[in-house]
Design a protein around this nucleic acid. Structure first.
Lengths: 135, 135
DNA sequence: TCAGTTACTTGCTAATTGCAAGTAATCATG
DNA sequence: CATGATTACTTGCAATTAGCAAGTAACTGA
């Protein structure tokens, strides 16, 4: 697996913005750094995992086994929506209830999650993907 | 990309330790959570990226474009060594100089990095993998 | 001898995390 | 109509972590 030769790794990186969009702050143009700027923390990808697993509501995320603190969950959902990885849409009126769904951009995080699942299962003792009841 | 059906996503997770090794603390047995416990932060995977790019010494990591603070670099190298993702070995005596190299476990993070490169290049404007001069 | 390099450590402040509790809107029951 | 439950959050605060600047130790080369 040669990251450098297949896709390049920023080596001589320059901080000037190469896009014409009003870009957010970036540490460097390296795609690994850029991706980590969005989801480089302990919780964000767990929310994305839950979305892949079919969870949709705030309460469902909250009750995942890792017990994410509610303020962090609210913050991460806000950030995921801001990054257009997740869309927030009402699924009923009175009372208004929202569900969170992955956008196409979000669904394309699948390979990242998949690679982490494979690495975790192979290298972290006691790590085991449990199937959903139906699976 | 169906994470749930291909590899499972912990859904009904139980916190008891399923391994017989003296396991480190885990938030859950989910492989995504376990992987994030090891490298779920802004800096760890950047060091791994540098190792994939051929960097070996403390100074080389330090001079990467993202300018990692030195105390965090020291901490992350220590953690990567503790997790046996990286090995620290002397490459010269007098003065003793150390180099850091990926173990097999570390090299198997390639697919995670590769997935992030692909996602970053596609979805983060201004994100661009720059080739090494020789590449 | 004296600046320079490598590989860190230390001190301190700022930002983020995580726990607990509180809030607001609405619904379901008696 | 009052009471309790549910959903989806927000707020306050202590503890942890990040990040900047500076310092240290062991050499090297001039």
């Amino acid at each position: 697996m040669l990251i450098a030769s297949n896709h390049g790794v920023c080596y001589f990186a320059i901080m000037k913005d190469q896009s014409n969009t009003p870009s957010r702050f970036k540490r460097s143009p390296c795609p690994v750094a850029c991706t980590l700027d969005v989801l480089g923390d302990k919780w964000t990808l767990l929310v994305v995992r839950d979305l892949f697993a079919g969870k949709k509501t705030y309460g469902e995320f909250q009750h995942s086994p890792e017990k994410i603190p509610t303020n962090i969950l609210a913050d991460r959902l806000k950030r995921l929506v801001a990054h257009e990885i997740v869309a927030k849409e009402p699924y009923q009126a009175r009372p208004v209830r929202y569900q969170y769904v992955l956008t196409e951009k979000g669904r394309e995080l699948g390979p990242v999650l998949k690679a982490m699942v494979q690495w975790g299962e192979k290298h972290v003792p006691g790590s085991k993907a449990l199937m959903k009841p139906a699976g």
